[in-house]
Design a protein around this nucleic acid. Structure first.
Lengths: 328, 328
DNA sequence: CCCGAAAGTGGATACGTTTTCACGAATCTC
DNA sequence: GAGATTCGTGAAAACGTATCCACTTTCGGG
């Protein structure tokens, strides 16, 4: 049952040519039409599939693309992964997936694994700083960041959603409804968004209302509940991710804050259940699949020249979780 | 900047030993204590990491484990993947991810890619029949199925949730509430569950109330809406997955069916948003992470002998989406 | 008609590793 | 103390591929 696969040598012998010729034909090199035809026929007949193992060793690098995500359980990253996968599939490239849990050390480990495998192209939602990525860069790995960029990474191209614009329209929408005490409930690596939040809010910003959670659901819930208890005077909250939004809804419900009567809520990232929620959640939609697809595209097309990053638009989808400021 | 990685040869020379000795030391073979010490020191000093490329070619197989899922966007499969990943991480093995979209042809393609890469161990939620998996089996690949098993696969071990038990308790719960016309809204590969459904319902089963959707959200919605319109007399529905459950809620809302007053709903798979839904959804929880973890464990520990499959318990979590049969 | 260029081809090499094999030294057995 | 056994070790082979290089053939230009 354990049949040996046909090698390039078998094909060469069966076709009466040298192995070099077979390799050239299959790699699109030059060859006479009749030779090409013959090799192709024989290869098909023998069901020959070039071994990635041999090729990888020869050219000192593994094909495929590495994908480093904080958490595949988060449906945003799931959709991002889906984008990467569909691009990779179109190119016939395998995808090696690793999760970092928003932890720099784990990210370093995963990078180590990828390097050991000889992977040369990586799409990542980065968690660590430049130092974590130093070994990768040293071996000439080409990386493309997705969804967020980390400080200190000089020339790594990034495919990002327009966080700044998304935050601005969300904040404008809330202030337009009369809200003044608006909180930001953030996760790891959202410096960009918080900066945009501060900028959009201007003099209204209250640093006590800017709260961060770690990546986990527990942490998100703790941050939301703590925020709501500590500052019952806030009237609106912008949650920087679907985990945070989920936590906010849960915490609000637990504390008998009615949405949107007592509390207006906007969540980053449109997820299917946002519509099922009571009330349906107003969200800032991000093109998660596109982000992944474009990032994969960039890392595949990176033929030597470093491409410039990409900024994808966000969209405010108004549902029912925001209302005018309560009379208080 | 493009620094060549240290090879085993470099380590051997620097340590004044042969390459074979270095390989043995690093692979846990026998060596004298002083030699071992010296090699280890030198290796650490040179920051030597064995190249997976060379090893893979030598032993004619790539390490790591392949993971084939219908859809990473589905949070159930996301959690399953998370289980596989954490097991693989513990073992230091990379994971190659591919999605099949519940399509046998795509699955065959992905299997082809894995074989080309020399991957020998695969965890899969299978979509195709035995024929699709024939080439894999021919090359001696060891597979473990997760979440569902496909007919015709003889000796492939599977890690499954106790669908039969889950369906039975769900149906018992619904019949206990007085429901008689209970529908099953199923997805791909749920023959087991439907069989259990028929068996649990006994004489009450109405074949017109057993409906199948394909994997997509659109298809799920269409199936749910069609079912509700065609048979307005049904009083309860069991949705075989979170996509189906989502579709059922959406369709019910669209048709002004109130849950649970007009329609009782039980969904397979407990997802975070089930609690946020209005009303909160009664679900049959499945240990998705465990399924993935156990499957990965099986495929890694499969040292020659074929292990027997595993059946993991499900749990009915009662929330607010089921009520007594409407007066009607 | 001859010479140079171009195209087609196959032999040989190298990629980094694991594993087999053989050899010397040290230890054990009787 | 001599032979047998074990242990530690290094040289060499093999895995399948891509690519360099040298060789032959063909063709076009002068």
């Amino acid at each position: 049952m354990n049949m040996r696969r046909a090698t390039i040598k078998d094909v060469a012998e069966a076709a009466g040519v040298g192995v070099a010729t077979v390799s050239r034909v299959l790699s699109g090199g030059s060859a006479s039409p009749e030779t090409r035809e013959r090799v192709l026929t024989v290869a098909a007949q023998l069901d020959y599939r070039p071994s990635a193992l041999g090729r990888n060793l020869r050219q000192q690098r593994a094909g495929g693309i590495g994908l480093l995500l904080p958490d595949v359980t988060d449906s945003f990253y799931g959709r991002l992964a889906d984008g990467v996968l569909s691009c990779a599939r179109a190119a016939g490239e395998p995808v090696i997936l690793g999760t970092t849990g928003d932890d720099a050390e784990r990210e370093a480990d995963q990078i180590g694994i990828l390097l050991e495998q000889g992977v040369e192209r990586v799409v990542a939602v980065p968690s660590g700083d430049a130092e974590v990525w130093a070994p990768a860069r040293r071996t000439g790995l080409t990386a493309v960041f997705a969804h967020r960029s980390a400080p200190g990474h000089g020339d790594v191209p990034a495919v990002l959603a327009d966080d700044r614009g998304g935050v601005r329209t969300a904040v404008d929408y809330l202030t337009g409804l009369g809200h003044r005490r608006i909180a930001y409930l953030g996760g790891p690596g959202q410096e960009q968004r918080v900066a945009a939040f501060r900028q959009a809010l201007g003099a209204l910003v209250d640093e006590e209302l800017v709260v961060f959670a770690r990546g986990s659901r527990d942490s998100a819930y703790a941050a939301a509940a703590g925020l709501f208890q500590r500052r019952p005077d806030l009237t609106a909250v912008l949650a920087g991710g679907n985990l945070l939004g989920e936590a906010a809804v849960l915490a609000a419900r637990e504390l008998d804050l009615r949405v949107p009567k007592d509390l207006s809520l906007i969540m980053f990232d449109d997820v299917p259940w946002a519509e099922l929620c009571a009330p349906p959640l107003t969200v800032v939609a991000q093109p998660a699949e596109d982000i992944g697809y474009r990032a994969a595209e960039l890392v595949l097309r990176a033929g030597g020249r470093r491409p410039r990053g990409v900024l994808l638009p966000t969209e405010l989808i108004v549902r029912g979780s925001c209302g005018p400021r309560r009379a208080s």
